[in-house]
Design a protein around this nucleic acid. Structure first.
Lengths: 240, 240
DNA sequence: TAGTGGTCTAGACCACAGC
DNA sequence: CTGTGGTCTAGACCACTAA
């Protein structure tokens, strides 16, 4: 095999990483052509299909555009479309300072609907983690996370306050997050929420309900997020 | 070549269609296993990679789930995630009756920001098409479309009233729609909009701004949609 | 253990873009 | 014309799941 993998990382992912890094370093600007399939195949000593896989998947992530007969190009200024990111990752990517404040972490056992969404028995004990998200010191979102108290025994407030919940789950509980299904709609802030977000009652709010799945297809986290609509836009790419 | 294509349709798309049809006919229910890659390859007389391509792409469309070591399964009751569909296609897929009413079709030439989003000179003449969307006879959305008056010369109100705008563009103007970038946020209905949607002023509304691209990567349509939030949920899948 | 999806090879021909 | 992405072959080995 010509392919000498490091760390057991698949070749196509290594190729992706190398391109991603060149973009992050500013070496490649939006609109610039990326190495072609054939070029990447030669450089990384892999077959065409492997190089191709790397580019197709980068395209799916919105990082590059591919144009038949023309080439592959670094895509628009912005967003990694449809990318699942934690709050801290999102803001870091935009160069914004951010923080979050844990309002409460407790165990509940009568959230039947939510337990069902996590494929758990309806009276399961769940952690309920409530956080306020702040950007430039101002509150702009409230997020409530639910996860199995059984599966994530030992979760503590201090651990959650130290860093990203995603990272915590991946590092300490060996869970790898794969994808999330989201339901997005709009509503008006009720009095409690309005106070937390420092807006008037009835102020429009973007409501996002996420069910987050691990690589094994198991739902592990349910997140209810309420975002001040005047501070938040969701960017999506959809295909025909 | 063992592969005998009909109509020049790629083999992997023919495989997709055959699976899609079996699902639509109810022959395959959510959770049911789909033929494996090897099975499909044998049945359609194609190579493994081709059968695989068909399944991977169906998965991306949210129609099936693939589980390593287990198989490929028809996915959840619902939605074709992240699928770009016209209004009529969306409701038809859910078995709902729907209609829409054209409020106005006119030509404007001072929508500079929108012209820019369509990569046109800022004083370009644009069609502005305003429609109200009705479900079960009740209004639930207002959509305003903008498209180049130059490129789509001859667009008429009667043509638009007859059917789907997507279909019209594809059939009569040879444009194939590829993807859309969307910005989603929430706002309160202003008095005019409130009247059109028969809700109170300030009622929460989901605002979706779409820029729709053709297969050549050219933006061809800009759509501003305002949806009654109490009648609409956007379903998305995001990947890590 | 048998069957599945995940990664990969070393090519091939075609359709399309741009010079 | 050359170079690009799009489709496809006929296999291979590995990692994983479920019986």
């Amino acid at each position: 095999m010509a392919n000498s993998r490091k760390h057991g990382t698949p070749a196509y992912k290594q190729i992706q990483d190398s391109i991603r890094k060149r973009i992050e370093r500013g070496e490649l600007q939006p609109g610039d052509p990326v190495d072609s399939e054939r070029m990447l195949a030669r450089m990384h000593e892999v077959s065409l299909m492997t190089a191709r896989h790397a580019l197709v998947s980068l395209q799916r992530q919105g990082l590059v555009e591919r144009r038949h007969g023309a080439g592959t190009f670094v895509s628009s200024p912005r967003i990694h479309f449809n990318k699942l990111m934690s709050f801290s990752e999102q803001l870091a990517g935009r160069g914004l300072d951010s923080s979050s404040r844990v309002v409460a972490l407790k165990v509940v056992d009568s959230e039947h609907e939510i337990a069902a969404r996590l494929s758990l028995p309806s009276a399961s004990r769940l952690f309920k983690l409530e956080r306020i998200r702040l950007g430039s010191g101002e509150p702009f979102a409230v997020e409530t996370c639910y996860l199995s108290a059984e599966d994530f025994r030992g979760l503590s407030r201090t651990a959650v306050e130290r860093g990203s919940l995603f990272t915590l789950l991946e590092k300490n509980y060996g869970v790898t997050i794969a994808h999330a299904d989201e339901e997005v709609d709009a509503t008006g802030a009720d009095p409690d929420l309005a106070k937390l977000l420092s807006v008037n009652k009835g102020h429009p709010v973007l409501r996002i309900r996420q069910t987050i799945y691990s690589t094994h297809g198991k739902p592990i986290l349910y997140v209810l997020g309420m975002y001040r609509a005047d501070r938040h836009v969701l960017r999506i790419r959809r295909y025909r």
